[in-house]
Amino acid sequence: MTVLRLGASRAVLELREYFREGLQVVFTFALPFLLLLLFTSVFGQGFAGGSAGAAAYYVPTLTAMGLMAVSFQNLGTAIAAERGDGTLRRLRGMPLPAAAYFAGKAGMVLALAVLQTALLVGTGAAGFGMDLPADPRRWLDLAWILLLGTAACTLLGIAVSSAARTARAAQAVVALPFLLLQFASGVFVPVQALPPWLLNVGAAFPLRWMAQGLRSVFLPESAAAAEAGGSWALGTVALVLAAWCAGGSVLCLLTFRWKGARDG
């Protein structure tokens, strides 16, 4: 009860602080939206159905990127910063349960994930004429992929925050693998155009499966043939994401530290 109440209080505080950090909002929240505008305009002619067709590819793909940005990238850098600037130490000196701290992070990420998805899907539909799925089962798919993928990336973000010794180093430790994964997962270049070895690298991580699963929500059934395995493979999506949730939890338990470099 206390954990839930304090977790909710933390989530509200964290969200308010998040939206007051302009640069952070641009890099972890607004970037997928800007890319959607750019890609749909630039590559619109290359897709069947023009910009609506391009949006049907890029909205789910960039939603996957956005979900990873608000979870993995956001927490990986923010927790490292909190460890360096005294925030974590101060919280440890107060009667705040550790579970409430993490519940607050999870609550903030979930709220950002839902906002991010709504922004991209809304822009695709209203701005580019993307068709919204009529079948409620597709929306159910969207819900579980969002939850499971965001959970996996949240756990990985918490784990990676401990990898760097300083907040400054964390920016690089988080940004580089995220950027490479975006390439390997078909975010910038459609999966059809990627060499098999790069697809295999991407297939080991959550982002590729989040993107593929979300494409199944917005693209017509016929588009499944363009995926790497020739189908949406939603069972594999669920398995890989669940496995990363389990692996991420273990990583968090093994690596998380409250103390920063200057705390000795």
């Binding site: 600037d85 130490r89 107060m94 009667p95």
Partner: peptide, 29 residues
Amino acid sequence: RARIGIVWQEPVEPSPLPVRDLLRHFAGY
């Protein structure tokens, strides 16, 4: 922990939020 208060030697990076809101939040602990 609820019976002690700590003012650290190194100042904590200040939040962008208003002072009273921060105190109300911490009071909730």
